[in-house]
Design a protein around this nucleic acid. Structure first.
Length: 745
DNA sequence: GGTCTGCAGCTTTTT
DNA sequence: GCTGCAGACC
């Protein structure tokens, strides 16, 4: 029996209001997941069959967590609910019935890379220059169009017919043809094709409408038009739809998420009951206050103000770092300090705007001997050797998949070059067959004698492997691929670090396949591949357990930690430069900041660096406007304490030190009271004994900006330098005390 | 057909 | 500073 008394009145209301459309506007940390899980458990307890419940979340991680929590409340019955992401849910529906749309059941799911290669080859075919039509731009145009449910023709109509749009239109059209011919869907198609399937097949629609009598959608603010339509279609007349969201946490506008879906829900479902959850149970007062203040700078939001009964707690700590390495060292140091104060490492997170920022922070953690875990970034399944092996699996499961066939036809090298592939491709096109079929038909494909031999061997190999595919388990199949292609040979012949790493990745892939097999005994290679495409990277990671978490602000959504670091609080980093001139994008950045702040339960650190290496360029950024939007009363003064000085990188660390570092005294103020200063105000001893500067060196000074060393006197700690700044000013400094950085030439 | 080298472009964020 | 690609050379 679940106990509803642990819920506050609006939460309880949301759980009990089971019939009819329900909109729950749930601020950050207001117990949204709690409401959803209790609601599901409550439904089950009141006689709703679990298989009549569909709960959609935004990430796999969230889905798993929700399932876990429902299981705790409702027991085994939870297993019979569908709790999944939009994309997995659609893939599941499509695996069953996609043949009705003229696809085959073993359809492939294309990732961004696959899409790119399709687009690039189409551009080539149509002789479009990559300068004038960057494939990336075309890719996003196509994705935008799909998110808005526009066919190529619709899109052209909307955009207007010009030479330019016409060209993109043709690529879009060709792209659709190619994917269909390859029996492949991209991420957007998963939603669109499901919609199509349901819209065109009344019995199928009826089946799912009857099946899903209660639908719940989490993170509703992040749904796009297609997803919204899908939900609406599935809901049917029953209208037992409960959506939970927070317009202030909409951070996927760039992916087609349409905030209007939440703002206009009440219009779309006139009998909607709306409940607001405004009491925050997560953060202490100061953190919540800061979050409220920041988000208040946005316009066009649903008015709400989070409040808490919790005490004010610790103030927010802002650290003013000299550069990104100082910032990283500070974070590592403070993370250590918090642990000494009793915080478990799994309760600490470092959040940043772009994945690229993680590297320096990782290096600092390595140096500090800290265990950490990076989410996102370069994904396991993106590594070349892993992709190659996956491509073997893909093209044997789905022989229409020319993209995968192309990838492995000469991998490892088997003397099938560009021209041979082109010949095969032409033959395939002329005979409306797949590239793989053309290879199997090598005798008639018009190849040179030499090429014919190579292709014949390839064809043999593929036939062999197909047999294993149908007779063996996925892991046996992968083993066969490795054995019979000689794929490993290229990495075992020469022993070096890189090859070791690749071999390790391959073992890891084998491990992943085996693990998948154990967890899904009835699953075949097709299921494994679907898992690879949809469940990707981080979801497969074990519980954060004992490690500090590093991730982007985007992936942090929905999570919470006792102690959070927001790194890189600088203009052009966060907010990111491209949002500077677009009000909508700027508001989205601000929402992202709001998301970041509200991840913290007890302690929030913000850091920014005065100069930062970006694109091989050292730049000095202003402190982020978001920091200035937080009242100074919430921000702590005081010192960082221990010296932050970083020893030179150990040789094995691969850390790049691009300039020499001096301890700084009397760090300047940025006009924000109580800002902690870099290097603990010069408490670190000046270490080097040899001269750091020489005449002609370019340097950067806190206040005076860039300049050139004109003259030097003395050595070591006593060295003084006359510096002429670009602004015209000339000064003499005691080198080891002045806030000067030597810049790389 | 394979391999090496030098250069351009690049980083938002993710299912 | 890294990656991917084009062009040159074997």
């Amino acid at each position: 029996m679940i106990d509803l008394n642990s819920l506050n009145p609006p939460q309880k209301e949301a759980v009990l209001h089971t019939e009819g459309p329900l909109l729950v506007l749930a601020g950050a940390g207001s117990g949204k997941t709690r409401v959803l899980t209790y609601r599901i458990a409550h439904l089950i307890e009141n006689g709703v069959m679990p298989w009549h419940i569909l709960a959609i979340t935004f990430t796999n991680k969230a889905a798993r967590e929700m399932l876990e929590r429902v299981r705790k409340l409702a027991g085994e019955a939870a297993e019979d609910c569908w709790i999944s992401t939009f994309h997995s849910c659609c893939a599941r529906i499509l695996r069953r019935d996609i043949e009705k749309l003229g696809y085959k059941r073993q359809f492939a799911i294309y990732d961004e890379d696959d899409k790119m290669s399709v687009i690039k080859s189409l551009c080539k075919e149509k002789a479009l220059s990559e300068k004038e039509f960057p494939p990336k731009l075309i890719r996003s145009a196509i994705s935008d169009a799909k998110n808005k449910m526009l066919s190529p023709e619709d899109w052209l109509r909307e955009e207007g017919n010009s030479a330019r749009t016409r060209a993109i239109f043709e690529v879009y059209q060709g792209y659709e043809h190619t994917l269909k011919a390859n029996n492949a869907l991209d991420f957007d198609d998963l939603i669109l094709k499901t919609l199509e399937l349901l819209a065109e097949n009344p019995p199928v629609l009826e089946y799912y409408r009857d099946k899903f009598r209660y639908i719940l959608v989490d993170e509703y603010q992040d749904t796009n038009l297609a997803q919204y339509e899908l939900v609406r279609l599935l809901t049917g007349e029953r209208h037992n739809l409960c959506v939970v969201g927070d317009d202030d946490q909409s951070i996927y506008g760039w992916r087609g998420a349409d905030i209007r879906n939440i703002l206009e829900f009440e219009k779309d479902f006139p009998d909607t009951h709306t409940i607001k959850l405004e009491q925050n149970y997560r953060s202490t007062g100061n953190i919540l206050d800061a979050a409220n203040q920041v988000i208040a700078h946005n316009e066009g939001r649903k008015e709400k103000e989070l409040w808490t009964e919790a005490e004010a707690g610790e103030p927010i700590t802002l650290y003013d770092a000299l550069d990104e390495r100082d910032e990283a060292a500070y974070i590592a140091n403070m993370a250590r300090r918090r642990q000494e104060m009793g915080t478990r490492p799994g309760e600490i997170a470092v959040l940043y705007r772009t994945n690229g920022q993680s590297r320096v922070i990782e290096e600092a953690f390595v140096r500090a001997g800290e265990t950490y875990r990076v989410y996102g970034g370069l994904k396991f399944y993106d590594r070349k050797e892993v992709k190659d092996l996956i491509a073997y699996m893909r093209c044997l499961v789905n022989p229409d998949d020319d993209v995968s066939t192309r990838r492995i036809i000469n991998e490892p090298k088997r003397s099938i070059g560009e021209s041979t592939v082109e010949r095969l491709a032409n033959y395939a096109q002329a005979n409306e067959m797949s590239l793989l079929s053309a290879a199997l038909d090598y005798e008639n494909a018009g190849l040179t004698a030499r090429a014919r031999t190579s292709v014949a061997m390839f064809a043999e190999l593929m036939i062999d492997l197909t047999e294993v595919l149908y007779s063996g388990t996925p892991s046996e199949f992968l083993q066969a691929v490795l054995d019979r292609t000689g794929y490993l040979k290229q990495f075992t012949e020469v022993k070096n670090e890189e090859n070791e790493a690749r071999l390790e990745n391959i073992s890891e892939l084998q491990g992943a396949v085996t693990e998948y097999e154990q967890q899904n005994p009835q699953g075949g290679v097709t299921d494994f591949l679907e898992n690879v495409a949809l469940v990707t990277d981080l979801d497969n990671m074990n519980e954060t357990g004992g490690a500090i978490t590093l991730m982007t602000l985007h992936s942090a959504k929905g999570l919470e930690f006792d102690c959070v670091f927001l790194a890189g609080m600088e203009e052009t980093i966060f907010p990111i430069s491209r949002a500077m001139f677009d009000d909508n994008q700027m508001e989205e950045e601000r929402r992202l900041c709001y998301v970041g702040i509200t991840r913290a339960k007890k302690k929030l650190f913000m850091t920014h660096a005065r100069t930062r290496m970006l694109y091989n360029n050292r730049q000095a950024n202003q402190i982020s406007r978001f920091v200035s939007e937080i009242p100074t009363r919430l921000i702590q003064g005081g010192r960082a304490g221990g010296a932050m000085r970083i020893p030179p990188a150990a040789p094995g660390l691969k850390a790049r030190q691009s300039y020499d570092r001096r301890p700084a005294a009397n760090a300047g103020s940025l006009g924000i009271p109580g800002v902690q200063k870099g290097f603990g105000g010069g408490s670190a001893p000046a270490q080097p004994t040899q001269n750091l500067f020489s005449v002609g060196d370019r340097v950067m000074h806190r206040m005076f900006g860039p300049g050139t060393v004109m003259e030097l006197a003395g050595t070591g700690n006593a060295q003084r330098a006359r510096i002429k700044f670009d602004s015209g000013t000339e000064r003499i400094f005691a080198v080891n005390a002045a806030p000067i950085l030597k810049m790389r030439k």
